[in-house]
Amino acid sequence: MPQPTVVIEGLVPLDLPDARQSVGPLHAQLRECILDGRLAPGTVLSQVALGRQLGVSRTPVREALRMLQEEGLVEAEPNQRMRVACIDPAELDADYAMRIMLETLAMTMTLDGFDAQARRAAKAQLTAMRRAARARDIEGWSAAHGEYHRLLTARAGAALQRQLRALSDRSVRYIRITQRFDPTRWDEPGNVEHPAILEAVLLGDRDAAVSCLAHHLERTALRVMREHAPDYSPIAVPKAMDLVNAGLPTWKA
């Protein structure tokens, strides 16, 4: 007797003539559903059920899940099934510590070349974030937020950019889950912090820009960890902040 198809909200069938072309779009769709919280932590991902819902064979599903496993977004179970990776506060702690160190570095590499075009683009993303937040458009806000942070680090070089993108992708998953559980207040701290970072950048105040960005990332990390793992005591983020503050004048720290 055939097993019933398990329908996962947000997944849509792929319409590709060649099954060999389906791995990329399938990986992208599953990845986006994990990052934005539609596929919640702990969700079991059956290759058969996913194949039926998406209209593809098990082979591209298996390959897409393998790619997601390499990214740390899914985990293998003993029965060879996969499940969406559960919330790991230690991983989040480490990811944000690395973001604090690397993103502040990347911003200092970008400041000298932050020209009029970059300034206009960053201001436009701040406006887009405010509008999306008022409309409670989490996806729109997330896109503008990601582009805003990218603009602040745009001259850091390809290798560092890749590391920042990977860290951002892992942390944005937790942020989006938090946003969905707190639909009325999730944007409030960023409404103050994001403009403060840009103001320091526009003034050419390197120390203030580094301090604002580091404290913004620290505050975000501690809030997400507090909400998802209240019993966890962060270690890496405070150490990263100690290192950043050690390089700033005491009146800036």
Rank of each mutant, 00 (worst) to 15 (best):
L126P: 12
R176E: 14
E75Y: 14
Q163R: 14
Y148C: 05
E103V: 12
T184N: 15
A200N: 05
A124E: 12
Q161P: 07
R170Q: 04
Q161S: 11
W141T: 01
R83E: 06
L151G: 01
L202V: 03
R162E: 07
R130L: 03
M98P: 05
R130Y: 10
Q163E: 14
T178Y: 08
A166T: 07
A106P: 02
V192F: 09
A90H: 10
L164P: 01
R120S: 06
A90Y: 00
T184G: 11
T108Q: 14
A94C: 05
P89R: 10
E188Q: 08
G190P: 07
A158K: 15
Q163I: 06
G113W: 10
R81D: 10
G146H: 01
T184K: 09
I175H: 15
A116M: 09
T178F: 08
R83A: 09
D187E: 09
P195G: 10
G140S: 03
E71D: 12
D205C: 04
M129E: 15
Q163H: 12
E75L: 13
H194K: 08
R99Q: 10
V172K: 01
R99P: 05
G146S: 03
G157H: 04
N79D: 13
E103N: 00
S142A: 08
G72V: 02
M82Y: 15
D205F: 14
G72R: 15
R81V: 00
D182S: 04
L151H: 01
R185G: 08
V192S: 05
R99S: 11
L92D: 04
D112Q: 08
R120E: 10
A154W: 08
R176T: 06
A76Y: 07
Q117R: 07
N191P: 05
A116K: 00
R120P: 02
E199H: 11
E147S: 11
D115L: 02
R206D: 11
L198K: 00
L73S: 03
D93A: 01
E188Y: 01
A135H: 07
R173V: 09
Q69T: 13
P189N: 14
M129H: 01
E199I: 00
D88R: 11
D95G: 04
E77M: 11
D88Q: 12
T127L: 13
S142K: 07
C86Y: 09
T178S: 11
G190R: 05
Y148N: 03
G146K: 00
V74Q: 04
E188R: 13
P78Y: 12
T104K: 05
L203G: 05
A135R: 11
T108K: 00
R136L: 03
V192R: 11
I197T: 04
E70H: 06
M129S: 02
R131N: 13
L202T: 06
E77D: 10
R99H: 06
R130I: 00
A156M: 08
G72S: 03
N79I: 06
G113S: 01
A124P: 15
G157C: 09
Y174R: 15
D137A: 01
A85T: 15
